[in-house]
Design a protein around this nucleic acid. Structure first.
Lengths: 369, 369
DNA sequence: CGTTAGCACTCAATGCGAAAGAGTGCTAAT
DNA sequence: ATTAGCACTCTTTCGCATTGAGTGCTAACG
């Protein structure tokens, strides 16, 4: 990948990528010259194409079928050639408007849905958004709500803003005031602890056993916390299926067909969103071209991912999943922009300290690894 | 649709439906005779097929291309011919086990997801599950949780078990004890009211204005309630996309392609799940064959829907969406069974009075209106 | 009378070869 | 170094004949 290409070779590679992204058809020398009014003959272009093919940046479906980028071709393009197309100012303002309009309204869930929706419609791909989660997950608050005399609703809120609710069957009837008392007691005891620490605190002494604290209730608290901790990245939101249906890659025997299965399997999605960028900086963009065998079904797809949030403390991942043949130059700024907004929102919402990468800032783009 | 068919005609129609469901290929007279070892010649079958075609129950793609059911053919089949195949006892037990295992754990959300998952895998179609909602929605409990000195999380729980959470920016710093005080006050005032009643109560007197109740908070309570009321049927869960990808109807130019778009647009799904069966009895199954123009994209699909819950008080809709060519005889009992379980669970969870259709019971099947 | 065997007919699907078209690599001239 | 020209390689497409499943009709049969 260290090969030095001539300026002309770079330009031609760029043109091939652009044209292929637009048409999804292998592109030949003659078409290139005509299409882009090149100041040279098709034979010259052919020679250059041959070189690029030799270098493994282009490939041909068969001996005389035009050329299109290889995975490495895309990587080179994204890494060295591409000129990012920033979102036009009015677009940005429109998006920001939408976010700030609903900001305090719908809570985290609202942000996630809005992000997924905007990302999908702007990118023409499938959007993936993971709800924010904290590295240092801790219980923030417990609420106990009487549903009937033997049924209560337990709500556990974590410092990541996630709320787990579960129904609890009570061994003996309890009124709301009784529950509230327990609620207060538990809040005092368990606040700012994680499930492990809570369990420890419970084990250390039986004092709590004898108190008003029902073990049936504490068990549920521990379980709820564990749940949140286990599914780390919280809920995953997707949108934009409609965009991708119809793209040739996804059609019938299309190679990317398998990718659609993924949308069903949130666990797989989750592993995509959580794993690769574990140690990635906020605001940095990660581009995964060709799935890298990590997920077999993604062989002909690309991912553009970004982390958002307060560095290391709380955050999540957003991104888009589309055909390898996607408009990186437009999509990368889009993803980055939305990630920036989410960072701001998260910082604001969970703020003691205000951090978060500011929108405009440049940040590195990491390609496959 | 009142036409009296001979027993033989009924049988032949049945066979055609079955075979077509299995093979997705138009079926001819000869194949029928061989396949099912019929005690007559192909010519006889041909004559009967001609009659059925005449009656509009079968159709042929072209003059000599075999026959397959029309929408009316399916409707007649489902309405009069089909023998329901109840789920085998061990299956039932397995499913029930899964539900009761998680029952009190994950709350409503868990049930919904499990229902969607089971329904999808058992039916081989797309499952649609709407969270329960109450006809007489009322606020059950408010929780106010301090996130930082100027940020709080407001959780509004309704009597349908839905929890709306939203972030609230506080005009002036407040501590958790202060918030708890307000929480108690609001709970006392607003419990068992709907958004309209709350608004009324607020308007009637300014007493509240002067009290510790911040209008910024009460506004949010009203807004949260309105939100829940507006989106009535609550969240919609779907699963089983993987099943339907690959079915010929959904492939490439497939006629049912548009149906996939629906999965993206929850609003459309919602209208499907809420509208048609508004006045349907709990436990009754509604089969919609061919979309009925209600949703244009569903022209070549069928829906099997059932309401669950406590009659009129609280409940939701579940169902499956698949190709018209679906295994009704198996799917209908499946949908009914899951609806039964959900009815039980909902009755239990929101019980004062215990109702709900018991699983085994027979209940009417309504076909297209 | 209902049933069946037989037959001519229809029409999508299949297969094959010729022609077209797009693109390449090579070579020789500029 | 660039380019024009040309032979070559493939896929795509079209036409055309073939196949085969399925039909509708009719005449014979029990």
């Amino acid at each position: 990948m260290k090969e030095k290409l001539t300026e002309r070779q770079k330009m031609i590679l760029s043109l091939v990528v652009h044209d292929y992204i637009r048409t999804a058809t292998p592109v030949g020398s003659k078409k290139l010259v005509e299409q882009f009014r090149l100041d040279m003959s098709s034979a010259t272009v052919r020679a250059e194409l041959a070189v690029l093919t030799e270098l493994g940046l282009l490939q041909q479906p068969h001996t005389s079928g035009g050329r299109y980028p290889t995975e490495n071709g895309y990587r080179y393009f994204v890494g060295s050639l591409m000129k990012l197309q920033e979102l036009p100012e009015d677009r940005r303002r429109m998006i920001e408007h939408q976010f700030y309009q609903m900001q305090s309204d719908q809570g985290v869930e609202g942000w996630m849905k809005l992000s997924a929706s905007i990302l999908a419609s702007l990118s023409g791909a499938i959007s993936l958004v993971s709800a924010p989660y904290s590295r240092f997950l801790a219980l923030r608050h417990i609420a106990l709500i009487s549903l009937s005399d033997r049924q209560a609703l337990l709500i556990v809120v974590t410092n990541s803003g996630q709320a787990q609710q579960r129904f609890v069957a009570l061994d003996e009837p309890m009124t709301q005031p009784q529950l509230t008392a327990i609620e207060n007691e538990m809040n005092a005891l368990f606040a700012e602890l994680n499930s492990f620490q809570i369990r420890e605190k419970l084990a250390v002494s039986d004092a709590f056993r004898r108190s008003a604290l029902k073990s049936e209730l504490t068990d549920h608290v521990v379980a709820a916390m564990s749940d949140v901790e286990a599914t780390r990245s919280g809920e995953i939101y997707t949108d934009g299926l409609r965009n991708v249906i119809g793209e040739p890659e996804f059609t019938e025997t299309g190679e990317a067909r398998g990718a659609l299965k993924l949308l069903d399997e949130k666990t797989a999605l989750r592993s995509i969103l959580t794993r690769p960028n574990a140690d990635q900086k906020i605001g940095g963009i990660q581009v995964l071209i060709g799935g890298e065998g990590s997920i077999a079904d993604l062989h002909h797809c690309s991912l553009v991912l970004a982390r958002y949030g307060k560095s290391n403390a709380i955050g999540g991942t957003i991104g888009i999943l589309g055909p390898m043949r996607m408009r990186y130059a437009r999509n990368i700024p889009t993803v980055r922009f939305i990630a920036g907004i989410l960072s701001d929102l998260v910082s604001e919402a969970f703020a003691d300290m205000k951090t978060g990468t500011k929108n405009g800032e440049e940040s590195p783009i990491i390609i496959n690894e």
